[in-house]
Design a protein around this nucleic acid. Structure first.
Lengths: 151, 151
DNA sequence: TGTTTTTATAGAATAATATTCTATATAATA
DNA sequence: TATTATATAGAATATTATTCTATAAAAACA
């Protein structure tokens, strides 16, 4: 991966629907050169997928919560069960197993507080093995990017 | 927004690089019908952008940290300064202003622990007005989606 | 209820773009 | 030095997006 690849990945992480020609002009290359680079980046797995990003506010799903979760038991079987079940919850877009006081941090998107309460009562805390939770409500998104800086 | 729009958005959030014809077949519509729907969803702002997602592990940037930050002073001027500066930090992909014990939660992507220490010492805590921080290191990504469920 | 208007759709025609092909030049390797 | 692999450019082709025309269904209206 050279500097041109990094610049190209940066462009693609910002907008993947431009024409090859447009990227080529930005990079000072021919369309074929850019085309081959993109195909290589896809082949090597650097580019994982191409997705559309939905505007949460316009979609009316802009109530975001970061919820820390502690399990009551850390037996392998129960841990795996929790991880399997949390993946199935459509309100949960992200779930990280983390170090520290709590075991997991979840990112949750719902319509409003009523929906969040419903989610917590009927879905999350209804799961087996949940010890305790602590919710941090998102007041504003200061930065929200899906791009990874490659230096 | 009807059920077809929701199904279409779900498909686009999973893969935005298929042909209109492919979505049309999944939805049981003509390519024109799907084309017009996509253009409308873009026009209405439901689709915010199209991006490539980079594989952090393949890119060698798979050391992820969720860092809680408390400011020392909550004077408007300082708060806005922090928010402006944190947006400029390339290692920070997300920053949420949240309720609770801490003021902000940041998602940080770096190569490894050494790089993280460097980031903390020379960039984050070098910012004016940082009170205290608490880092949660990501052990594993149980779920990592950019899609919003529209019910 | 009948009429008009709007909206969503399909299929065909066209325009734009992606993809492949051929040829060169450059860099890496033996 | 000769040889192989790799990256590139430009042209040719294939695929896909986009536009156009026409219909049908749904909504608004008298």
């Amino acid at each position: 991966m050279d500097q041109t690849d990094k610049r190209l990945l940066s462009l693609l992480q910002d907008d993947c629907k431009r024409t090859t020609k447009a990227y080529a002009q930005d990079l000072g290359l021919s369309t074929t050169a850019v085309y081959e680079r993109i195909k290589r980046l896809e082949r090597e797995g650097l580019i994982r997928k191409y997705v559309a990003l939905v505007d949460k506010q316009v979609a009316g799903m802009d109530f975001t919560v970061l919820c820390q979760v502690r399990l009551s038991r850390h037996i392998k079987e129960y841990v795996l069960q929790f991880e399997r079940e949390v993946q199935q919850l459509e309100e949960v877009s992200e779930c990280f197993h983390v170090s520290g006081d709590y075991d997991y941090i979840l990112k949750i998107h719902v319509a409003n507080m009523v929906a969040y309460r419903d989610f917590m009562v009927n879905k999350l805390t209804a799961l087996n093995n949940i010890g305790s939770t602590q919710s941090s409500f998102v007041i504003s998104e200061v930065k929200a990017s899906t791009a990874i800086s490659l230096g």
